[in-house]
Design a protein around this nucleic acid. Sequence first.
DNA 1: GTAGAATGAACCGCGGTTCAGTCATCGGCA
DNA 2: TGCCGATGACTGAACCGCGGTTCATTCTAC
Lengths: 195, 195
Amino acid sequence: MRDPDKPQAIIDAAIRVFARNGYYNSRVSDIAREAGIASGTIYLYFKTKDDILVRLFREKMAEWVALVRKEVAAEGDPLAKIRKIVALHFRKIEESPDLAEVVQVELRQGHKFFRGASAHEVSAYFDVIQSVLEEGVAAGRFRRDLPLKVATKMLFGAMDQLATSWVLGKRAYRLTDAAAPVASIFLKGVTTDDV
Amino acid sequence: MRDPDKPQAIIDAAIRVFARNGYYNSRVSDIAREAGIASGTIYLYFKTKDDILVRLFREKMAEWVALVRKEVAAEGDPLAKIRKIVALHFRKIEESPDLAEVVQVELRQGHKFFRGASAHEVSAYFDVIQSVLEEGVAAGRFRRDLPLKVATKMLFGAMDQLATSWVLGKRAYRLTDAAAPVASIFLKGVTTDDV
DNA sequence: GTAGAATGAACCGCGGTTCAGTCATCGGCA
DNA sequence: TGCCGATGACTGAACCGCGGTTCATTCTAC
């Protein structure tokens, strides 16, 4: 019987290896060595090298969206929900450096991931953000004429860029310190009255 | 004597080929065929395949920053300058579909874009944005306590995400239509009084 | 003893790069 | 003007290292 923990172990090893060397500079044998198995074994659990990256991303992203959904549901106020999303996003990046490196830098590559297979997982995260904005508009807290899709992409883009800069930089500062300013500027931008 | 137009022709061909197939799925011979020359000729003008991508990006980005600097200088009001940057950014993306594809999708891969060789060119663009924000703060138009670096990254991230979504999507809408809302939300977020 | 999981050396296709040969250009000379 | 040799840009077939993938064999658990 196939070991049910193997795929997880391989994915975890792959995250460390990709974070260190980048996807295209990582050999399948590197991942195998990191996982303490033979390279052929990987092909018992993954179809191709690409498949490792795709499943890695899908798994982590699904976990992430589930967590954000739960945490956001626990907040009542739309403004508090936005602050929560930003805080969670930055905390996650900060406490998972290897995963952050892979997601922010390696995974951006072309047609394979953002388009195609993983588009669904990304848009699920967008949906969470957009729902909060809709809720805020309905509650009269956000501008009635707020362009939802544009505002959603703006917030995601802002968080994503802060995250990318932090990952690419020396990580000399605390990313979580940026959470309050980011939320505050964004909220001031979308609310009807001042925050 | 080496043909001084060749490097340009090769870069232009590379943009079309990379846009169509992605960087890693493009052969050097594909670029050569697109440019109407032999593959070996490329190595008279470029050191490696990577070199093509790096020089492509540097050239286009330098042109871009020069244009933005000039256009921004022509505006007086800091708010107008921000609106100008957003409008230019989206217009450029929209009217250069192949280049946009390469910059938004292909160039993000690995360590090539924000890190490495092109870091300087990217940060020059950041500097333009940040200067406008500084000017606005000094003029009392933007919040005195505005965190400049955070706000700069937020605006860039917002524009960049809109651009990426547009490129990845079917391009079914006009990206330039998003310029006004993006500028307006951002400006409302950073100004002292309402816009 | 058997099933099937694991191994890892070898295979093989790919494609970046090279370089020996070809061709176009041009200055010098009769 | 017309020929000739030299220069160096250009060509593209072939080379070769790389690394993803395979599979004959070994190991392990029951």
